[in-house]
Design a protein around this nucleic acid. Structure first.
Lengths: 208, 208
DNA sequence: CCATTTTCGTACCGTGCGGTATTCATACCG
DNA sequence: CGGTATGAATACCGCACGGTACGAAAATGG
């Protein structure tokens, strides 16, 4: 069904594998910190020439942005989508903790590329930086919607205004991902998570 | 009383101002991230020559270590010392939160140099890295001693084994310092802190 | 076959880095 | 004064970075 016979473009056929290059970039940025992975290094790993990469992506900023786009579509979106599921609060929370403390596997690094980019926000290029901001807002909005829905159903009692509670959940999950990426013991991080989220599952007064 | 008449050393008198250089280094590492401040940059700010700095400190690793030593003595130690005070738990906790969320002043940057070094642990030199590890252990031990003492007096009820609770407090304070350094709103961070530490001040079950 | 179009990668540019060889300046001693 | 000892800074090294000029390579169209 692939019409090899249809008009091929005029010049030399393209051999640059954009998808594979993006996979290499994502894996590199994800496994190691976002900075400390240079364009040169990605070219070496992907075994492509530097001008090839620059022709495809423009510059380092747009390469990172493309990597973040692909990552958010394939990894982040499914996780945030679970917030809309109609599962009990604790089940969803546990799956979030599970995601944030996942161990490294041969094909999937530990931690979260998005979280790493957030912590390096100020040294990202303008395009990637804006993208990170936008995804951050989206994530917090998703947490807020989730928490509010569960609060309205009486499953939990919000210990603080929704903006504060949502950003609290976001901050805790981000910290967990950072710790996991730094090599912390997943069991310890999970134990910390249960302490941090006890304020949600065990409503009490929180007056200072 | 300064004996100018006593033997002066043989050669050309030293003019290198070690203390001032260290102040510049600490301020630079503290205000900006530890990496992204180069030796060249410190020389520029301190208006000293590069060989001068290298003669005094050896290399970048030992310069950072000297800065960390001075910082821990002048800033960190007093804070950790308050953990031994006999004040009520909540008072001490509030002063910790106050320290971690302090706003930037002209002379004192926000955040904490030690916290910044911890988050960049893996790219520190061997000397500074070891020093950071050692200080981390010291801080956690101090938190553990504080919490255990307060628990023994019935002021709080440990929500988890002491090692987990102490590292939890450490992780939360470190995260707060990181957020403040990243420019987060101190009021929001304090609100998060009260949520995170509610598990200490409002003992309940924490079963997952 | 040759001109045209498009993509390819080698080889380079300027910059800033951590670190240092070398030479000059300033002191004491006799 | 000259000899000796020590500290100072200029000017450099090799390297890796982000980014690109440019000619070779591979296709189509006539």
């Amino acid at each position: 069904m692939t019409d090899d016979s249809t008009k091929r473009p005029r010049g030399r056929p393209k051999t640059f594998d954009r998808a594979r290059t993006l996979d290499v970039a994502i894996d590199s940025y994800w496994r190691h910190s976002v900075d400390s992975v240079s364009v040169n290094e990605i070219c070496r790993r992907a075994k492509i020439s530097k001008p090839g990469l620059y022709r495809e992506f423009g510059d380092e900023d747009h390469l990172m942005d493309a990597a973040l786009t692909r990552y958010s579509e394939t990894v982040l979106a499914p996780v945030l989508a679970t917030l809309s599921d109609d599962r009990p609060f604790r089940k969803t929370l546990e799956s979030l903790i599970e995601f944030a403390t996942r161990e490294e596997t041969p094909h999937v690094p530990a931690g979260c590329l998005f979280a790493k980019m957030r912590s390096f926000r100020w040294r990202l290029g303008p395009v990637t930086g804006e993208h990170v901001d936008q995804l951050s807002e989206g994530a917090i909005a998703a947490y807020a919607a989730w928490l509010e829905r569960r609060a309205n159903r009486g499953e939990i009692e919000l210990p603080a205004p929704i903006e504060i509670t949502a950003t609290y959940v976001d901050a805790q999950l981000t910290m967990m991902l950072t710790q996991i990426s730094a090599g912390e013991d997943p069991e310890l991080v999970r134990a910390h998570a249960h302490l941090a989220f006890a304020v949600l599952t065990n409503p009490t007064s929180t007056s200072p």
